[in-house]
C-alpha cells in the first residue's frame, strides 16, 4: 500500500471521487450498495489516489463492484480474485490492492486460495460480501447458508453445515480479521479503513443480505452485536472463540497482529544475459 498518512493528509479525494459512471446492476435494497459506499468512505478517509488503487474480484453480484469504482479494476474469473491480487501486489508493491467478492467466490469455488493468501500475509485488503446465497445464478445455497436451508438447489434442505470463514483465515495466519454489516456502513467503513492501514493480509467479512433470494436483514439485525470493549484483538484464542460463534454474530476487529517481516533477499542487480550464459560454456 502506498504510504499515505491516514489522518493528517489534506482532503483531496471525496468519497464520490471513487465512483465510476456505471450504474450498479444490483437489485434495489441489496446489501452491496452499503458496502460500496463504505469502501468509498474508507478510501476517502485514507486519501488513496484512485490511480494507485487496484480492486480485484471474481464472479458474482458483488464481484461487479470494481466496475463501479473509478479506480483500476481486474474483474477475473470465478473464485480467482486472490491469486490475481497476489500476483499484482507482488509485481507492483507500490499499489494499494484490494480483493472483493462474495461467499461463492471466496468460500466455495475459490476457497482453496484463501488459506494460502492468508499465510502469505501480503498487504492486501479483502472485503467479502457474504449473503449466504448464490444471487447471480438466482438462488442456490452457498457454503455459509444454514443447515436445512431450502433453495432451488436444495429443495429438501441443505444437509451440510455452514463453514466459519473467520476461523479458516485465523487458522491460516491472517494478521487482520474483522466482520462488519452492510446495514452499519459507518462501522464498516472504519473496519475497511483499518484494513487498508494494516500492512499485511486484512480480511473483512461483511454480512451483506440479498433482498431477492435470501432476505436476512431482519435476522442479522437480531443476531449482530459488537465485540465487547474487553476483547483483546491480539488474543488469537479469544478471536477464534468469537469466529466460530453461530448463535449470534459478533462485529468488529476479531484479531490483529503486526504483519510478517519480509525475509532477507539479495540486493537486485540488472540481469546480464552473457554473464548468465557463460555458466553453460562447454
Amino acid at each position: 500500500m502506498t504510504a499515505v498518512p491516514i489522518t493528517s493528509a489534506p482532503v483531496v479525494y471525496k468519497p464520490s471521487d471513487y465512483r465510476s459512471d456505471l450504474k450498479p446492476i444490483w437489485c434495489p435494497g441489496c446489501g452491496d450498495f452499503g458496502v460500496l459506499a463504505a469502501i468509498q468512505q474508507a478510501l476517502a478517509a485514507a486519501q488513496i489516489n484512485p490511480k494507485d488503487l487496484a480492486v480485484v474480484s471474481g464472479i458474482g453480484c458483488s464481484s461487479r463492484l470494481p466496475g463501479f469504482l473509478q479506480t483500476y479494476g481486474l474483474h477475473t474469473v470465478h473464485g480467482r480474485a486472490l491469486p490475481a491480487a497476489i500476483g499484482l501486489k507482488t509485481a507492483r508493491p507500490d499499489l494499494t490492492v484490494m480483493a472483493v467478492g462474495g461467499d461463492g467466490d471466496f468460500f466455495s469455488i475459490g476457497l482453496g486460495h484463501l488459506p494460502h493468501a492468508a499465510r502469505r500475509d501480503l498487504d492486501i485488503t479483502v472485503v467479502v460480501m457474504d449473503n449466504a446465497i448464490y444471487g447471480l445464478t438466482k438462488g442456490q445455497t452457498s457454503p455459509t447458508s444454514p443447515r436445512g436451508h431450502v433453495t432451488k438447489s436444495t429443495p429438501y434442505g441443505q444437509s451440510a453445515q455452514p463453514l466459519h470463514p473467520l476461523a479458516i483465515v485465523l487458522a491460516s495466519g491472517a494478521s487482520f480479521v474483522a466482520r462488519g454489516f452492510s446495514s452499519q456502513p459507518k462501522q464498516l467503513a472504519e473496519l475497511i479503513k483499518a484494513g487498508l492501514a494494516h500492512r499485511g493480509f486484512a480480511f473483512i467479512h461483511v454480512l451483506s443480505p440479498c433482498v431477492t433470494f435470501y432476505d436476512t436483514y431482519k435476522l442479522y439485525k437480531e443476531l449482530v452485536y459488537n465485540l465487547p470493549d474487553t476483547h483483546d484483538p491480539s488474543d488469537l484464542d479469544a478471536a477464534m472463540h468469537y469466529a466460530v460463534e453461530s448463535e449470534r454474530l459478533p462485529l468488529g476487529i476479531f484479531y490483529r497482529r503486526p504483519p510478517l517481516e519480509p525475509l532477507p533477499r539479495p540486493t537486485p542487480k540488472p540481469f546480464d544475459t552473457q554473464a548468465y550464459l557463460n555458466r553453460f560454456r562447454a
Partner: peptide
C-alpha cells in the same frame, strides 16, 4: 503458488500490473 490456477492468475495479475 498453491495450484496451477493460482499460478496463471497470479501471472495475469502481474501482467495487468505492467510486468
Amino acid at each position: 503458488a498453491e495450484d496451477e490456477i493460482a499460478s496463471i492468475m497470479a501471472c495475469i495479475g502481474a501482467s495487468y500490473g505492467g510486468k
